[in-house]
Amino acid sequence: MDKAEAIVAALGGADNIVEIEPCATRLRTEVSDAGKVDEAALKRAGAFGVMRSGTVVQVVVGPEADTIASDIEDILD
């Protein structure tokens, strides 16, 4: 499983992801059910950190965020 796939799985799967947007250092995602997000799995997938506020989950992945986000969008399409 590559990094993008691992992150999608850790966010509760493609169906749980409402929106994903890259920033310079992180993925800003909105999920339907925050309870399905597995923080430990996000870190195993390579995240440096995870910040959560309700259904908004920021996954800190460093400057590769834009590349990972487009890989994730390919998975979601």
């Binding site: 250092t25 800190v60 460093g62 400057p63």
Partner: peptide, 9 residues
Amino acid sequence: DPVFAQAMV
């Protein structure tokens, strides 16, 4: 911003 303040990257 905690990402920078905590030196996550």
